[in-house]
Amino acid sequence: MSAFLTLVRKEVRDATQSRWLVGFALSFALLVLLFARVQSGGDVFAEGFNRTTAGLLNLALLAVPLLALLLGASAVASEREQGTLATLLSQPIGPGELLLAKYAGLTLALWAAVALGFGLGGLLLALFAPLGAFDRFLIFVGLAAGLASASASIGVLLSVALRTRLRAMASAVLVWLVLTLFYELAAIAIALTISASGRTLLLASLLDPVESARILGVLAVEPNLDVLGPLGAYLATELGVGPTAALLSMAMVAWIAAPLSIAVAVFRRQDV
């Protein structure tokens, strides 16, 4: 087995042994069923996937980035604090290779948690509920996985740049607050108070991976202008649903690649 795969395997093992990740997966499996029950007024399987998915979207947009940001933020900083980073980098592996392997392992573990959490509940629903909206549920699971990847990428960048675990974790929480709460409020404020240009609104929707994921999720589940929010509504009206989805999907990919690339570049120049 190559050094890269050995590191990925170690990272997956570490992440899956984390109580946070297991707790997240089980909690979400339960929440899928709970939402199905609440939305259907007691009959768990009456409404099926569509309403359940819509209900879960907002919860996933809060929980998934928080988990991924925190795990990413601890990835390198904790190794540095333990001193194990020096032991790892004294082996014949490059810093870029180590960082990418850590990210890959972490992302695989997050995907597994998302798939397990939503997949388990989804499987139970699929057994008994109408399958009409199952494809939308799958898109939602894919979106959650993509958001986890982007958030982990930002977390890893914080982990590399801020060096201590405490600072990286605190910054991860701050970033999470900005991305999930303050950003949308600011966007609404801009939309309501300033006559913002189309370019500004377009940029605003691309500069937050959580907002991108939210708009994509709403487009997939229930493309309603009221639910899309000011940025989503603007994009859907101006560009149409298809191009908006394509543009936001590319933004998500950029949110995965850009922070990770910066993290690799910074990490390569750092002393251990």
């Binding site: 042994q17 333990q82 001193g83 194990t84 020096a86 032991t87 004294s90 014949p92 592996i93 490059g94």
Partner: peptide, 19 residues
């Protein structure tokens, strides 16, 4: 990387993963 293939290193902290 090639140089480190020829080196065995013991750090001052002897840091290894505790788990």
């Amino acid at each position: 990387k090639a140089a480190r293939r020829r080196i065995g290193y013991l750090s001052q902290e002897a840091a290894l993963h505790p788990d």
